[in-house]
């Protein structure tokens, strides 16, 4: 397993408060990894350690195979980072800022021109690049934050609450951008408190609370593990013993509960197996009147996990 980010027993204290408490985190390369936790869980502190803004009090941090220790510009060369509510110098114009940042990455003048136009188009700031950043709204600064994170075409993009301050249309656009860049083999590490956003874009998640990791892995697996198995409710036209017997023998069904003509089926898989079940029922002579898959969401899993801890 190729890891983009790995923390081992990471510790960060602010005086007597332990913000990050022996955090062990593994982020696979080429995934969109959601980083979740309630307010004050230690998400932003962890991210700040990853990008070198804070020094850990203990543990080890590796980003793209390189250990993060002190001021290490070589690691940052491969990272695009958008902080939570980014702020940029008001005296610069949008284009000037991106041009200066591009130069810091060693991108040639010609290439900078092309890339700046491309990222401005992606984040919807084209036409406003010659305005001073001081004249930008919060949403526009947020878009500029995403643009500067994409500019160097990094291997790893760390986004801290990318949708904060954006209007609903902007949020949808950002999700689209995240999915698009991930398709091209970029690892996206995304911190967000919008669980539906994480559910829509992330393939993997890590949930932290009080600085420690409570769960980490593939999104569906985490949901299934925390919220229990997926349930399928099937209503038949008539009660049928044959249907019950056939379904009982399907490998992905662990339990069937009968309530007159309704069957409550407990699945052992998180995959969508409705077609197989429908086919089996029809083969056994049953007629399906109604079928509903009760898939539990990330929100429920998250709440269960936090309440439990």
């Amino acid at each position: 397993m190729d890891l983009a980010i790995e923390t081992t027993d990471l510790i960060k204290r602010y005086g007597s408060i332990v913000a990050v408490n022996h955090l062990n985190l593994k982020v696979e390369s080429n995934t969109i990894h959601g980083f979740l936790g309630p307010n004050g869980a230690g998400k932003t502190t962890t991210i700040k350690i990853l990008v070198g803004l804070l020094k850990p009090d203990g543990g080890r941090v590796t980003v793209l195979g390189e250990e993060v220790q002190g001021d290490n510009p070589d690691v940052r060369l491969k990272i695009g980072y958008m902080p939570e509510l980014p702020r940029f110098p008001k005296h610069l114009k949008g284009y000037e800022l991106l041009d200066i940042y591009g130069k810091m990455y060693g991108i040639s003048t010609q290439e900078r021109k092309i890339r700046i136009q491309r990222v401005l188009e992606i984040v919807g700031l084209k036409g406003r690049e010659r305005d001073f950043i001081g004249e930008y709204s919060k949403g526009m600064q947020q878009r500029l934050g995403i643009a500067q994170a994409l500019l160097s075409e990094p291997e790893l993009i760390i986004l801290d609450e990318p949708s904060l301050g954006l209007d609903p249309a902007g949020m949808v656009e950002v999700r689209g951008v995240i999915k698009e860049i991930a398709k091209e083999g970029v690892t996206v590490f995304l911190s967000s408190h919008l669980l539906y956003e994480v559910e829509q874009v992330c393939s993997h998640v890590s949930i932290i609370h009080r600085g420690a990791c409570l769960a980490s892995g593939r999104l569906e697996e985490i949901i299934a593990k925390i919220s229990g198995p997926v349930m399928l409710e099937v209503e038949l036209a008539e009660e049928s013993e044959d249907v019950f017997e056939v379904l009982k023998n399907l490998p992905f069904i662990s339990k069937i509960q009968r309530e007159n003509k309704t069957l409550i089926i407990k699945l052992e898989t998180t995959d969508d197996v409705r077609p197989q079940i429908s086919q089996a029922i029809t083969k056994a002579g049953g007629i399906i009147v109604y079928m509903n898959m009760k898939r539990r969401g990330l929100e429920e899993a998250f709440m269960r996990l936090i309440m439990k801890s």
Binding site: V51, G52, L53, F88, Y101, Y105
Partner: peptide
Amino acid sequence: ESGTIIPLVTKPVSRS
């Protein structure tokens, strides 16, 4: 104070 230090020092440029 303004928070502009964050995007600046997270670029591949040493603080020196």
